[in-house]
Design a protein around this nucleic acid. Sequence first.
DNA 1: AAAAAAT
Length: 464
Amino acid sequence: MSGWGETNVKESSWGKDPEPTPIKKESSWADEPTETIKMDQLEKEIKEIKKHPHLAEVEHDVQVTLADSNDIYHSVSTFEDLKLKEELLKGVYAMGYQKPSKIQATALPLLLADPPKNMIGQSQAGTGKTAAFSLNILSRINIAQKTTQALVIAPARELARQILDNLREMGKFTQVVTSLAVPGAIERGEKVSAHVVVGTPGTVMELIKKRQLDVSKIIVFVLDEADSMLDQQGLGDTSVRIKNVMPKTCQIVLFSATFPDHVREYATKFAVNANTISLKQEELSVDSIKQFYMDCKNEQHKAEILSSIYDLLTIGQSIIFVRTRRTADYLQKRMTDEGHSVSSLHGDFEGADRDKAIDDFREGRSKVLITTNVLARGIDILQVNLVINYDMPVDKDMRPDAETYIHRIGRTGRFGRQGVSINFCHDKRSFEEMKAIESYIGREIIRVPTDNIADIEKILKKEI
DNA sequence: AAAAAAT
């Protein structure tokens, strides 16, 4: 690895930014917890947020390592600096982006450089990674050539759909054709010739095997949530198999908020000679997300406390994470029986039901979503202001899973907005899991006592 | 344990 040039990006290269616009104006409903939110009001708020989605700014130190020490590194401060095609720039501004986020300002010049170089890019949840790789893809597509030139794979159906929607919106003034490759989206025997294909690994591999998707002209291959795509059993194998059929010259782009050491090592072999953008350990999670824990007496007590939280507080929108599909089903039924309007989503559902559940939540038609790790990563819903870890995240060996934790709480506090997360502990083990994660990410998780309902109300009402 | 696949 010797000879790699290392450049520490200094704060001064971006200059001092103006005061971030307070987000509160954009979401006044978050400030009025005493009044019941009417659904049409929430829908109005969502429209309002969508008009100005990217006002807040997040600044963090990143470290850039160039694959070739002779390269000259230059970040940008405006989208104009990127010399994008006119119709693409129009799409960027139409989406409400004003200036590049840090990851966009840092990654895009490296991604867009010719000849193309691989990239391993790390940036916190909700800081604009999708837009970064989407702009690279849209810039590189040759419209006249009616073949697939870019492939994006992601770990879940919902995320693949979201990426595709983003990409379409950004490219809506271009003639780029896109296609979704998830179960049920492509007819049997139907040939896929879209310029850009976004999908999940199993379906993409099937399409390649059945010769419905021609990969020979692909020039960009993106793995979103790359650490998960490479490390998770089943996902990792398929990702490697797909990579092995990609043209040898194609640009490989890996993005995630987390790259645990053992995966990063593997990633540098998967994407050789990559320019890398990485975060320090202590920068992994964003400060705008307040973290709490509530120690409950037992499993039963968790459900009671959950119910009382929703009795006490008016919450914009929230996601409740549980460990198993079964718990999701159980909790959904129980909360519904207790008069709360909650929906659920997990991998046991049919594709169409999954689509409906996430679409309803996205549009504000449902406000509380109980789910598994299927939605832990990438899902971008600006009005989510509370994430509850009903079960602490654990990995396949039942060890505390800090990466999943970081991704889960990252479903709130998007683009510098405020967010709250609450962890439920109910025994020594879950308490220790929570403490282990707390020390790993280096941020305090504050205790909320559960013996007095009035206390819960007092403490949480201030935050949510 | 969940996800991703479909036979």
